[in-house]
Amino acid sequence: MATSTAGDPGREQHEPFAVSGVIAVLFLASACVWASVLAPEGAVAAVTSIGVRDHCASGWVVPDTGDAPIPMAGRPSGSVLGSGGAVTVTVRGLTGDEIVLGPPVVEVVSRRPALPGVFLPAPCDAALPPGFLTADLDRPTVLLAPDGEPAEFPYQVTGTEPDQIVIRPVSTTDDVEWRLRIPWTSGVGTGELVVDDDGTPLRTTATSAARPFCVELPDSSRWVSCRSG
């Protein structure tokens, strides 16, 4: 989810308003699960998708309930996105004005040790799209950068020409709750788009404390215990 605060350049007081919608796109093989979209109001809005799209390296961490197979039918119950997944934010304007997006900032809300449980890896053909920004959640101040290089901002968006910001959050040690804050300016004022997961912080966990399951071949339709084979 994304919310925004904005202000008229001629006013000293900032007036908050809702400008967000959420689509949770959960990439598991060819399956997608869609959440409802909230009608946005204001000057700019964002739609957020969350998926495991990192060529076997990412996946979901779920509670450990034994070795029973788990079907790949949408996002597994009780799951948290593992390190290396993708959070894709599609930003668009809601007026006729051009919106200029500044560099996003990652706000860490909470930090705990890596979540224990079972790690369900993404199928190996679920590649991350090009042009993503890596968010190193292990750093005290999280930086967004493509392969260590500075991100190219500002972005410009309109209602007919939206743009995507793809974030690859990574952590080797922690279970991190976080939000994305995107400053914007336009002819109607300035503000900040606050991106989260349908009203709650985004969450990414290192997979180091979870035991791995395997993708069952050749169908890749469920996860199975690696030790049962």
Rank of each mutant, 00 (worst) to 15 (best):
M1C: 11
T5L: 06
G7M: 09
P9K: 08
G10N: 13
E12W: 11
H14V: 11
P16H: 15
P16T: 11
F17R: 15
F17P: 01
V19S: 08
V19C: 08
S20C: 12
V22D: 09
I23Y: 06
V25D: 08
V25E: 08
V25C: 07
L26A: 14
A29F: 03
C32N: 06
C32E: 07
W34H: 14
S36M: 03
A43V: 15
V44D: 07
A45M: 13
A45W: 13
A46C: 14
T48A: 10
I50R: 00
I50V: 12
V52I: 14
V52L: 01
S58C: 13
W60M: 07
V61W: 10
V61T: 12
T65I: 02
D67S: 10
M72A: 09
G78H: 13
V80R: 02
L81K: 05
G85W: 00
G85L: 00
A86N: 01
V91W: 04
G93P: 08
L94G: 05
D97H: 14
D97G: 12
I99P: 09
V100P: 04
L101Q: 11
L101D: 13
L101E: 12
G102R: 07
V105S: 09
E107M: 13
V108Y: 01
V109H: 02
R112D: 14
P113E: 08
A114G: 10
L115E: 13
P121E: 02
A122L: 05
P123D: 00
P123S: 06
C124T: 05
A126M: 08
P129R: 03
P129D: 08
P130A: 12
P130T: 07
A135S: 08
D136L: 00
L137M: 06
D138Y: 04
R139C: 10
P140M: 04
T141W: 01
T141Y: 00
L143Y: 01
L144A: 11
P154A: 07
G159R: 13
D163Y: 03
D163C: 00
Q164A: 13
V166Q: 04
I167M: 05
V170E: 14
V170A: 04
T173F: 04
D175F: 03
E177G: 14
L180G: 07
L180V: 15
L180Q: 09
R181W: 04
I182N: 11
I182K: 09
T185F: 02
G187S: 14
V188I: 11
T190F: 11
G191D: 09
G191L: 12
V194K: 06
V195T: 11
D198S: 11
G199I: 04
T200G: 04
T200L: 10
T200N: 07
T207M: 01
T207Q: 02
P212C: 00
P212V: 02
V215H: 05
V215L: 15
L217V: 03
P218R: 13
D219R: 15
W223F: 10
V224L: 03
V224W: 02
